[in-house]
């Protein structure tokens, strides 16, 4: 359904745009119908930038993003099919509109002929799906809601449309554990009805819970990806292992761990190979499980290691 092909994004920064920042580099993967792909990686690794490109909020510098084979830039009515909910709800929501108005704008734009009663029912069921009480949120401005209420309101808004693809950027970060599960089960249900979801999250257990595929991003580059149970069960790249090793656990304090030396977080390929030349791309280490190199370099020795 949604396909990314060698997608890159370069920002110009510094005075007069003299410096280049490669936020996303040659990223390629697909989100199929009814599939959840979780995207993990440290902050600044390009996750949000990828999501913004998929939502046409940022232009693609190189490569292509297609929906059913057609470039998203050329799709009409794109937002009827694809919607996003973004990190930092406080800034992605216009502070001067009350919640009802925000939802009403969806009706005006996408369902102009729907009757008031039908609309009301639709709004209530999407609020109920995220466990919000209509009376408690509808008459309020964004700053009058708690962080988690606002996050859920934005999810409810996206669900008002019968979308096919949802970009969800840290949408559960401000929810308590129990509400997180409700939202995830909701996503699980929606994927059962064919929704494709790009799920960006720091909660790796929940990413593992709900996703079919996992993509690990570092410095804008995919370092490892594939079927979730393979990436989590048999992580190959040292960066992925560090990440999984940092997951905090109940009943086991960091101080009690024999401080295992952090695995060198740079690409292990580069110990042997040079730093120049081109990026070798990803290698299929086992069926459905790809691993690669975080920086550019010739990685022949790495390929050996993986095999």
């Amino acid at each position: 359904m949604l396909r990314l092909d060698r997608v890159s994004k370069t920002f110009r920064t510094g005075s007069f745009g003299g410096r280049e920042l490669h936020a996303v580099r040659e990223v390629g993967f697909e989100v199929a119908q009814g599939e959840v792909v979780s995207l993990i990686g440290e902050s600044g690794s390009g996750k949000t930038t990828l999501g913004r490109m998929i939502l046409r909020l940022a232009a693609v510098s190189e490569g292509s993003i297609t929906l059913d084979g057609v470039d998203i830039a050329r799709q009409k009515d794109y937002y009827r099919s694809v919607q996003g909910v973004f990190q930092d709800p406080f800034s992605s929501y216009n502070p001067i509109f009350k919640a009802d108005r925000v939802l009403e704008m969806i009706r005006q734009r996408f369902f102009p002929s729907m009757g008031a009663a039908d609309w009301r029912a639709r709004v209530e069921s999407s609020l109920a799906a995220v466990r919000l009480d209509p009376g408690g949120v509808l008459g309020k401005y964004p700053h009058q809601l708690s962080g988690g209420q606002l996050q859920r309101l934005l999810i409810a808004r996206a669900l008002l449309l019968d979308i096919r693809m949802l970009v969800a950027d840290e949408i559960i970060s401000m929810l308590d554990a129990s509400t997180r599960i409700d939202v995830l089960n909701l996503l699980g249900e929606l994927k059962g009805r064919g929704l494709g979801i790009l799920f960006i999250t720091h909660d790796l257990s929940l990413g593992n819970y709900v996703s079919e595929k996992t993509v690990v991003l570092r410095s804008g580059r995919v370092v490892e990806m594939g079927r979730t149970e393979l990436v989590f069960g048999n992580p190959l790249h040292p960066y992925t292992r560090n990440l999984l090793g940092s997951v905090p656990r109940l009943h086991r304090r960091w101080s009690e761990e024999e401080d295992a030396p952090e695995e060198e977080a740079t690409c292990f390929y580069h110990g042997a190979a040079g730093r120049d030349a081109t990026w070798p791309g990803l290698v299929e280490a086992e069926p459905g499980h790809f691993v690669g190199c975080a920086t550019s370099g010739t990685c022949a020795p790495a390929l050996e290691l993986v095999r």
Binding site: G147, E170, S173, M174, H202, N242, L243, P248
Partner: peptide, 12 residues
């Protein structure tokens, strides 16, 4: 919620 938008290693 100073860590809620961070990846696990930055959280740590």
């Amino acid at each position: 919620e100073v860590t809620s938008a961070l990846d696990v290693s930055s959280q740590k």
